[in-house]
Amino acid sequence: MKRNYDGCALCDATWGNYWREIEGENTFFCCNICADAYENMLKRVKKETGWDKIDYLEISGNYSAGRTCYATKGDERFDFFFRHEDGEITEFRKLTKD
């Protein structure tokens, strides 16, 4: 799965040294909380879309503002917003493009 971040898969920080296998890839995170949030967010995207895999994920935002994202699979695109607390997803909304 391709991503827009080079650092922590959720927040793009480059400090920390926490690794977890996600979608078959050994993925870098700054901490276990970001890893939990990321994993739970991907599960939610798959549940909402019915996709078995995601080709590309783009994230913008932060913990306070929440994160506006989109995921693609082939020609399909899914836009969404989410917030987390301690790694648990506390808000998740599908975004519709105008």
């Binding site: 480059t14 400090w15 920390g16 913990y63």
Partner: peptide, 13 residues
């Protein structure tokens, strides 16, 4: 989160 917000996201010594 606090570190990212207040100090910075980059890895430093």
């Amino acid at each position: 989160m606090w570190l990212n917000r207040e100090i910075g996201k980059e890895s430093i010594s």
